[in-house]
């Protein structure tokens, strides 16, 4: 059967990895391509590059990063952040990205998912959802613009709609759990993964190997993403995979 995927995420600004990297064994830990190649050697299953550049120049730089990454990597990678048009998607896919991830733009114009899926196929259309629990509504609400703006949409309904419109994968980040290292948001992940028939990537909250085990055994998540714990070498991709394998979760 298909294995559970472990996905490190790199935040890139103006062509440089910006946060949470403390590698001593890399020549240039700020170089996204070098860091990505390191994770490829570590047997990461995929990578996500999140472009947090604010400027037009920064975005152009990202295209160059993608070209270099495509030349260096022997595993697939997704690029997200600031993608607003089908032309943006085309540029990134043409440069060598395997998938593109859209978040705010999809909320503002859900038709973008359909356009992208029709032109490039659902398999490369990832819809990223930032969700936060609202105790009053007793439901998860979608946030945009990097978590700054609250929307009226509910996460589960939005995930369902995104898939109906052609999303091939959902990258689901729990804003409640992100950064706390207390584990993934199992309730949110399960609720979304039970609703959609496409792979769901759990994101936000990983602090140790056991958290990966929990999200894979207690929810239907197909993949789990983490950033700082890998970058700070608190856990390695290898140690996560060994932990999972010893407990009967199939990994590569």
């Amino acid at each position: 059967m298909i294995t559970k995927r472990i996905i490190p995420c790199l935040d890139v600004k103006d062509g440089r990895v910006v946060k949470g990297v403390s590698f001593v064994n890399l020549r240039d830990a700020g170089d996204p391509v070098e860091l990505a190649a390191y994770y490829d050697r570590e047997r990461a299953d995929e990578l996500v590059f999140l472009d947090i550049s604010a400027s037009h120049e920064g975005r152009k730089t990202m295209i160059e990063v993608v070209k270099q990454a495509a030349a260096e990597l022997s595993i697939p990678f997704t690029v997200g952040g600031g993608i607003g048009t089908v032309e943006d998607m085309f540029q990134l896919l043409r440069a060598g990205a395997d998938k593109v991830s859209i978040n705010t733009a999809a909320i503002l114009d859900p038709g973008l998912i359909e356009e992208g899926a029709r032109r490039f196929g659902s398999q490369c259309m990832v819809v990223a959802i930032d969700a936060k629990y609202d105790p009053a509504l007793q439901d998860w609400v979608v946030y945009t613009h990097g978590g700054r703006n609250r929307t009226e949409r509910k996460a589960i309904e939005w995930a369902k709609e995104a898939v109906e419109r052609g999303a091939g994968e959902i990258l689901l980040t729990s804003m409640d759990c992100d950064g706390h290292k207390d584990g993934y948001d199992l309730a949110l992940t399960q609720a979304v993964a039970d609703t959609v028939q496409v792979p769901v990537i759990a994101s936000g909250g990983a602090g140790n190997e056991q958290h990966f085990y929990e999200v894979f055994t207690k929810t239907k998540a197909a993949a789990a993403l983490a950033a700082s714990i890998f970058h700070f070498q608190e856990v390695s991709v290898g140690s996560v995979k060994s932990y999972l394998q010893e407990r009967g979760v199939e990994v590569r």
Binding site: K4, E169, A222, R252
Partner: peptide, 10 residues
């Protein structure tokens, strides 16, 4: 009853 796409390492 499968996730589609078949996506990942197999």
């Amino acid at each position: 009853d499968l996730l589609v796409p078949h996506m990942g390492w197999n």
